[in-house]
């Protein structure tokens, strides 16, 4: 209950951060706007319909990811240091609140805030796609169209579960990133932490590059081992970015639900790891 109380208060506090609201509003606005501008990016109407979708989806997911990453970084960087700045942490820890309860509450609050932000962006994203799909279906259903278009109209599904999986995967990477940054915020100053977090994301996002560096010809076996180790220890943010299935309906490789589940476990373990280390550090931290 103490953890829940701290988490709830954290959410209320975090959602009122102006900078977070700005990112959220801009992201949602641009996702909605993408409805219109995707049309100008293609040269044709029908054949372009699928490429419009593709662009819309990719843009939406990218927008969510980018805004969410900033929100994750900002939340992770500020949540705990602000408790010190406002001296609220003193009154809280002077109460019969165990230190792990405080940290866990903060983690939970950050994850809930990100959940709300992702939920808003994700809902906008899915509604945008569905609106677009309805429009495309209506066009395709018009009686003058022959079998060619008819075939592509059948392909335009109104709702695609892959969108939901994609949004969940997007959320999972926020979860991992903000947990790591929250952990770092116990050690580093806010500015250092922001860039550290961004770096962790960038390296994790480009893990394939890191791996191929490790496999590069001429690399010594020690170096190769180093790269391999790095790629296993850093969270693989690239693995959360697999819009293929969503954007490429012809791809029938694997069960997205199962993959998402696996990634969820992966993300949760990282979050747990960050939380436990944070608790270990915070127990010994002077406040």
């Amino acid at each position: 209950m103490i953890i829940w109380a701290i988490a709830r208060t954290t959410v209320g506090d975090a959602l009122r951060k102006k900078i977070l609201q700005v990112f959220l509003v801009v992201a949602i606005g641009l996702i909605v706007l993408s409805l219109s501008f995707s049309q100008t990016l293609s040269f044709s109407s029908q054949r372009g319909a699928s490429s419009d979708f593709m662009l819309l989806k990719s843009f939406g997911l990218g927008m969510m990811a980018l805004a969410g990453i900033f929100i994750s970084l900002i939340l992770g960087v500020t949540l705990i240091p602000q408790e010190f700045e406002r001296r609220t942490i003193y009154t809280i820890l002077a109460k019969p609140v165990k230190r792990y309860e405080f940290i866990t509450g903060k983690f939970l609050g950050a994850l809930m805030t990100l959940g709300i932000a992702t939920g808003l962006m994700g809902a906008t994203f899915i509604i945008t796609i569905v609106l677009k799909a309805i429009g495309a279906q209506q066009a395709a259903a018009s009686p003058t169209l022959g079998h060619v278009l008819g075939a592509s109209a059948e392909k335009i599904a109104l709702f695609d579960w892959n969108m939901v999986w994609a949004v969940i995967l997007v959320y999972l990477q926020f979860m991992v990133l903000s947990s790591i940054v929250l952990l770092f915020s116990l050690i580093f100053t806010q500015t250092v932490n922001f860039f550290m977090g961004a770096a962790v994301y960038a390296v994790g996002f480009m893990s394939t590059v890191v791996i191929s560096l490790g496999g590069a010809e001429g690399a010594s076996s020690a170096l190769r081992f180093f790269y391999k180790t790095v790629s296993y220890l850093l969270p693989r943010f690239d693995q959360f970015n697999i819009p293929n299935q969503l954007l490429h309906p012809e791809t029938q490789v694997t069960n997205m639900g199962a993959y998402t589940g696996m990634m969820a476990l992966y993300g949760l373990l990282y979050t747990l790891l960050a939380l436990v280390v944070a608790i270990l550090i915070f127990e010994r931290k002077e406040v």
């Binding site: 208060t9 209320g12 506090d13 009122r16 406002r86 001296r87 609220t88 003193y90 009154t91 002077a94 109460k95 019969p96 609140v97 165990k98």
Partner: peptide, 21 residues
């Protein structure tokens, strides 16, 4: 000690709280 904290309280200098509340 947590048990002791049940029976004590603390008013810090110039306290601040969550402003939105």
């Amino acid at each position: 000690d947590i048990e002791a904290k049940e029976r004590i309280s603390y008013l810090p200098e110039s306290p601040y709280f969550y402003e939105h509340m």
